[in-house]
Each structure stands twice: as C-alpha cells, then as structure tokens.
Simulated assay, not measured.
Amino acid sequence: MIRRIVIGSTLALATAALLPVVRNTVRPLVATGVKGAKSTLETIKEEMEDIIAEAKLERMQNQFEKELAESDIEINQTAERKRSTIALIPAAKNKLIPLVDTGVKSVKSTFETIKEEVEDLIVEAKMDRMQKQFDKQLSDVEQDILGEQEPSSTQEITNEQEVTSEVEPTSELEFDNKEEIKSDS
C-alpha cells in the first residue's frame, strides 16, 4: 500500500512538472488539427451542397421535360379531337337540327298548354272568390231587407212569389226562338 502511495505521489509531481511542457507542445498541434478539421468540414459541406443543388436541378429539369412531354401529348390530343369534331359538324348538323327543332316545338307546346291551364285555374279561382263575395253580399242584403220589413210586407212578398211561381207555360213559350229574343233586345 505504501508502494502505491509513493507511486501515486511521484506521478502527481511529475504530472505537475510536465503539464506546462505538454500543454505548450500539444496546444499548437491541437489548434492546427482543429483548423484542419474545420477546413475539411467546410470543404465537405460545400461539396455536399453542390451535389444537392445539382440533384435538385436535375430533378427539376426531368420534371419540366416530363410536363412538357405531357402537355405536348395533351395538345396533340386536343387538336385531334377538334379536327374530328370539325369533321363531324356537317354530318351532325343535318341530323341534329331537325331533332332540336322538334324538341323545341314540343317544349313550347307543353309550356303553352301549362300556361293555358294555369290561366284557366286562375280564372276559376277568381270566379269562385267573386261568387262567394256576391253570395255573401246577397245574403247581407236579404237579411237587411227582411230585418227592415214589417210582418205584413213579408206576407205580401210571399204572396207575390206564389203568383210568379204559378206563371203559365204558354207565356214562357212565346220566346222559344232565340233570334226573336236577340232582335227584341
């Protein structure tokens, strides 16, 4: 154990004495190594950036060429479709125009029919409304008349109704001819 203490103490003293010498010798070597490593890393970094930039440029160029080829194909297909469509126009025109004209006429007649039916329904609705108003007004007038009359005058109206209901058929037959009625009026 003493032996270990002596060896440890000797090494500690030697280290303390040699440390400034080693420090002065190793420090320039380490600084040179760090500078060399930095320049090497910067060179590697620049080379990697150049490789990445070239790869991106090549990828963009390939993509551009691909898109250009696709657009050329699309342009050619569009031109071909237009040529075939233009070639079909005269033939289609002779067949389609009569069909379209027939369809248009059919649609027009359907709309006219619908329009007439709607107008008839509107007229019927107006007539019903007017009839209801007339019936209501007539009922109101009859109630006013009956309410104002005295019992003796009500009896006279009833007697007059009986007389008019007993009109002889011969008096009605005098105007059988419609032309006579029109000429009289």
Rank of each mutant, 00 (worst) to 15 (best):
D135G: 08
A53W: 08
D72E: 08
E142S: 10
E47K: 13
A14F: 10
K136W: 00
P20V: 14
D176T: 13
T170R: 04
A53L: 07
E168S: 12
N76S: 09
S39K: 13
A12D: 01
T164L: 14
N159A: 12
D135I: 04
K38W: 10
M48F: 08
L29R: 07
E148F: 13
K178L: 13
P90Q: 06
G147D: 06
S106W: 10
I89P: 00
V30F: 09
G103W: 03
N24V: 15
I2F: 00
T158F: 13
E70T: 07
R81L: 03
V107F: 06
G36T: 13
E67L: 12
K126Y: 09
E119P: 04
E65I: 11
S106I: 06
I145C: 05
K35C: 03
E162I: 06
T158I: 09
M130T: 10
R23H: 15
G36K: 15
Q149K: 08
E156A: 12
M60P: 00
L57W: 01
E142T: 09
L29Y: 06
S71G: 01
S39P: 02
I97E: 14
L11G: 15
F64R: 08
V34S: 09
K95H: 15
N76T: 05
Q131N: 08
A69S: 07
M60Y: 08
S165W: 04
G8A: 04
M48N: 10
E166W: 00
E168F: 06
P20K: 14
T164H: 11
S71P: 00
E65R: 14
E150C: 05
T170P: 02
E168H: 10
S139P: 02
L88I: 01
I89V: 14
P20F: 12
I157A: 07
D50L: 09
L18I: 11
V104L: 15
K95N: 15
K82Q: 03
T40D: 13
T102D: 00
E117P: 07
V163Q: 07
T40H: 12
E172C: 05
I51V: 13
E58M: 12
L121K: 15
